[in-house]
Nucleic acid binder design. Structure first.
Lengths: 198, 198
DNA sequence: TGTACATCAGTGAACGCGCGTTCACTGATGTAC
DNA sequence: TGTACATCAGTGAACGCGCGTTCACTGATGTAC
């Protein structure tokens, strides 16, 4: 009864969705135009109604991966309501870092896809953007006086490097297993805090 | 006069060398068996005399990239002679970190290749291995008393995450340019020191 | 010292495959009258 | 309310390409006698 209609209805969203599923399993390199078209139940040529080339489709999938990462950071931060104190501002900052690494642990291939080099640029800026979430959290911390203006200047690179590095390491399984991931995560977050406070 | 001989002479080394050249320009994904054979001046099938498959050749190139990275860390560390003091031990540790990030800046695609996921395992352990260089430097620091036993346990992940993160970020050009790379590098190294000292 | 021969690093042609992309087309949708 | 038609999201066959790998083979090397 529910015969496949000639028009798909929402092919753009379907291609993105299947792209996320495929990239979650095999990374950005596993995305092919023919396979995504087949998964969406459509002929390869139909993809060109929505993306000018495979590169642009890959860029859109990668962007969506970054936006999901940023969203999970926001959700984790918002689970700790701000109250204007430095103690809570720290908790909110560290919550974003924890969510970042959790994402890498839970979806390593999608994490890699988020930062895979793409031949095509995305058609719009990331929204939300992980970098902005980090910067906002540091501004909030600075506003409470818990982060000095001197540290504020270098804080984004220090925090971003530490957390992105751990995320990359756990996602790629590159490091010898000296510590369980949870312990490594708390160790790195503790290190970030000392680096920014000291 | 110098006609091309039937036997190559050192095809294994030539394939690795061309692999490094190619990966330095285009990353691990740009390595193809046919192209490397052509660059070495040999037919595609000849490669199979030295590697069971392309995957093993790629794994060997990736390993060599990691070993070059580790070698540059060792060279930088050894440019600062040890004297048993904590101050010099710190310098030697930070020199390895600086070399790590410099490698990522100078050869971003080769840096990526070093940590690219490979379907095949290398045939032997990395020699030298970057992880060992880091661990040695931390042991040296602990021996001078400049690193407490408590911090020593988590120090590898803290230092490795920070430096690997910055390396990945600069190699992939993923972060907004808030700071020049040199400033970002010194900021991150300063952060590592405070994280391990504090 | 010279020759027969085993070894093995090479050749080159061929294979089947999946890829991105193109093209002329089809058929459903929705708007103008 | 019904019909003509423009729009445009789809089809499906075909293209040329570069890929990894295979196979029967060739020719240089080096060792045994």
């Amino acid at each position: 009864m529910n015969r496949r209609p000639y028009h798909h209805g929402d092919l753009y969203a379907a291609l993105l969705r299947e792209g996320i599923v495929t990239a979650s399993a095999g990374g950005a390199a596993s995305l092919t135009l023919r396979d995504l078209a087949k998964r969406a139940g459509v002929s390869p040529a139909a993809v060109y109604r929505h993306f000018p080339s495979l590169d642009h489709l890959v860029a859109a999938v990668s962007q969506q991966a970054r936006e999901r990462l940023a969203s999970s950071m926001i959700a984790a931060r918002d689970a700790v309501p701000a109250d204007g104190t430095g103690a809570i501002a720290w908790e909110r900052l560290l919550a974003t870092g924890r969510a970042y690494v959790r994402f890498a642990v839970d979806a390593p291939r999608l994490f890699e896809t988020a930062f895979a080099p793409c031949p095509a640029a995305p058609s719009r800026p990331d929204d939300p953007a992980a970098w902005s979430v980090l910067v906002d959290a540091l501004d909030e911390l600075a506003a409470t006086g818990a982060l000095t203006p001197e540290r504020r200047a270098t804080a984004p690179m220090i925090a971003w490097s530490a957390v992105h590095g751990l995320g990359t390491i756990v996602a790629s399984g590159v490091a010898p297993e000296t510590l369980p991931v949870d312990d490594a995560l708390e160790a790195v977050l503790g290190g970030v805090r000392r680096a920014l406070e000291g």
